[in-house]
């Protein structure tokens, strides 16, 4: 389980856990759960397009993540946030079905892309993942205080020289980066669980933002490590364990909060 090709997986999983936890913390804070679900799912057509064009999968995913950021933020100027998000998803997935219909023999690939693949990490994928996680972590650290302030009150952030719209764009960009690197490992449909589950549990366990952030990263790491180990042992899909473990940690958080309130 810890030898040979699996060692890549463990390295990547650790990076994924840290980044997903960090970004997830702000996803929950900014009520961006829907966007966190839609960006990865809307990026998966990129992988299909890449396979049609014969280019690198990661590049395809990256391009569609970028398009997603632009699409959502542009549509948001028009309409409610969640309608904009839903519409982007529809458009992206429509393109995805089109690309899928152009390639044959791809359905197994689709499954891995949607629900994750433990063995999906090759050595030459390590470098891009490491770089993008470094960028994502750096950007989150840089944006930590403005984002916190903006979640508290957009007016306060504006007064401090950080306009909401620009912050939203920056945030979506970080989310997209985190998505692009997380997606091949845990799958387009499960990136979101890994971001939302640990963060929503941590928020119930502590009131202090830094502690909550640390707790989120810890829970995300536990979730992703546990899922990969369980998936390796049972041969069941990673996605199933991620969904289940994320729900477990949230339920645990709720129960502890309920006991404290009593």
């Amino acid at each position: 389980m810890f030898t040979g090709f699996m060692s890549n997986t463990w390295i990547v999983a650790t990076l994924v856990g840290v980044v997903a936890g960090m970004v997830g913390f702000f996803v929950v804070l900014r009520r961006a759960a829907f966007a966190a679900h839609v960006l990865p799912l809307g990026a998966f057509p990129g992988a299909a397009a890449a396979s049609v064009l014969g280019v690198s999968e990661l590049a395809g995913i990256g391009v569609f993540c970028g398009l997603g950021v632009l699409g959502i933020s542009q549509l948001q100027r028009w309409d409610r946030r969640e309608v904009a998000t839903a519409l982007w998803l529809a458009v992206a997935l429509a393109l995805g079905t089109l690309f899928l219909s152009m390639t044959s023999e791809y359905s197994q690939g689709v499954y891995a892309l949607l629900f994750g693949e433990v063995l999906g990490v090759s050595s030459h994928a390590l470098a891009p993942v490491a770089v993008s996680s470094a960028v994502a972590i750096g950007m989150t650290a840089l944006l930590f205080r403005p984002l916190l302030l903006d979640s508290l009150s957009p007016e306060l952030a504006e007064a401090a020289g950080a306009p909401s719209r620009r912050l939203e764009l920056a945030f979506l960009t970080v989310l997209a980066l985190a998505t692009a690197m997380t997606l091949p490992v845990v799958g387009a449909l499960m990136v979101f669980s890994l971001m939302v589950g640990p963060a929503s549990a941590a928020r119930l366990l502590t009131d202090r933002p830094r502690v909550a952030l640390a707790l989120t990263i810890g829970l995300a790491l536990a979730t992703v490590w546990g899922s990969i180990a369980l998936s390796y042992l049972t041969d069941w899909p990673v996605g199933f364990f991620i969904g289940a473990l994320a729900a477990l940690s949230y339920a645990g958080g709720r129960m502890r909060a309920a006991r404290q309130a009593r």
Partner: peptide, 28 residues
């Protein structure tokens, strides 16, 4: 609370999709 509702929805979504993954896998 709208925020909590989003999170509950999200966590449920994760569980549902996880189950989908498992069932599709068992199907194959």
């Amino acid at each position: 609370d709208a925020r909590e509702r989003d999170l509950v929805t999200g966590v449920m979504l994760g569980v549902g999709l996880g189950l989908t993954a498992l069932l599709l896998y068992l199907g194959t």
